[in-house]
Design a protein around this nucleic acid. Structure first.
Lengths: 175, 175
DNA sequence: CGCGTGCATTAATCTATATTAAGAAATGAA
DNA sequence: TTCATTTCTTAATATAGATTAATGCACGCG
């Protein structure tokens, strides 16, 4: 939590909220100024395509921040739903760090670093999606998030990898 | 160029360089502190996978900045090659905006906005790669970059879309 | 100027993953 | 506990896109 204060500032209003499993925190299409810091529990962000299929964009476990950052910063309607996978304790805070008067240079720098890290992980994800097979992506997922598989259903792993649950089942059998 | 000064500061050392077509600007695997602002011309960043296949991560036309941001900020070896597609005039500058003494709050804020936009475009790319067919991705590419197809070979479009040149040829015939 | 190299296209075949369908196992609610 | 619902697995079939190979074309270079 100290870490969070370093970014958002003590002055920023941050509200603690408890959510039950499977509660929706944010809906696709709304303009959201909020970011969600996971204090405890597990949440995910995902989009639903025109065929009604879910695609998990990102998981958020303890200490992670989940947000549609471009929506936050530029007041665009979000592409992403956010909901809880487990009962969760979430700190909801407003991403107003771009207002001159509200933030110090140090906080802005910390925040820039956070954004740079996120860019790095998205960059790796794009390259991975373009250049690796489903099996390779699954193996990398296991390395990157060794604890997640115990907490989420297979079909969500499949959705994150960009494949069907059936394909993942086959891959798992082969390993 | 004014726009660039607003981010990096007049004090930051920025070197103008001219490159011929097909010159390599940055190699995969090195730690790079440099970012590349395209004043004129066209460049690309790409990775090469273990089978030797190229995957274009991003094109940079006039006014774009191409950089491996995570490598810049955290001194990680870059995943990306960068080279020129056309003869280009590039402003090479060091991404040291995270050093307290070198940047003002205003510049940091502008920079954060830039990072947020990049996150937005990567997010759309990830979701697109997971949820759209090659044909749909090609159509979106044409909408998003209407001028690029006149300047780059088909095989580079294919590489950006994550498909082979043969598959793209088939898609184009169908349209 | 011609020639070689790289580019785009087409077609035939192959393969990874999707789709559909069904049953088994796990989970949750009454 | 029991029943219902969701999740996971397996298998058969379908399909998008990869791979391989061959051909015509353009253009940069000696």
């Amino acid at each position: 939590m100290d870490f969070l204060k370093e970014i958002i500032g003590a002055d920023t209003k941050a509200i603690h909220k408890n959510f039950k499993k499977k509660e929706i925190i944010q809906k696709q299409g709304v303009v959201s100024k909020n970011a969600f810091y996971v204090k405890k529990g597990l949440i995910r962000s995902y989009s639903i395509d025109k065929k009604g299929k879910e695609h998990i964009f990102m998981f958020g476990t303890e200490e992670w921040i989940i947000a549609d950052i471009e929506s936050n910063v530029f007041s665009k309607p979000t592409q992403l739903y956010i909901d809880t996978i487990e009962d969760s304790e979430i700190v909801v805070f407003s991403l107003d760090y771009l207002k001159t008067d509200q933030s110090t240079k140090e906080k802005l720098q910390k925040n820039s670093k956070l954004l740079a890290r996120r860019i790095g992980s998205l960059q790796r994800r794009v390259i991975q999606l373009m250049s690796s097979s489903a099996k390779e992506r699954y193996e990398m997922f296991l390395e990157t998030y060794p604890l997640l598989p115990n907490r989420i259903p297979q079909k969500m792993i499949a959705s994150y990898l960009g494949i069907t649950a059936e394909a993942l089942s086959k891959i798992r059998r082969e390993l």
